[in-house]
Amino acid sequence: MIYNIPFITTAILAVIGLYAVIFKRNLIKIAIGITILESAVNLSLIAIGYRKGGVAPIYTNLPPNVDIPHGMVLPVPQALTLTSIVIGVATLALILAFAMKIYKHYGSLDSHSRRLKE
């Protein structure tokens, strides 16, 4: 059960993130929702790579009596997470920049007061 907690947290975070994106009208809050969703995905990636009692997968700096490779956590999901975090920063910066520009143009951050429709 205790090892399922990361996955339960993932599900909770994903629901919170999607809730924020769907129901919050403030554009900044939508950006926050996307970030929360992204954290959920990153957490799930890290949780997948974890092994019970595993150590960091650095061959040259292993503690003694570690079973190779089963005593180490998976390195690939960590690499994926790192890439995903970097991409997330770029997208978040861009979204916030757009939100700022929208505020400059319309003087409002409400997602319901836009003009592009139909």
Partner: peptide
């Protein structure tokens, strides 16, 4: 159709 195409980003994701 006009009612659906309301241009609100929240609804797109919904």
């Amino acid at each position: 159709m006009r009612k659906i195409h309301n241009g609100i980003i929240n609804d797109y994701i919904a």
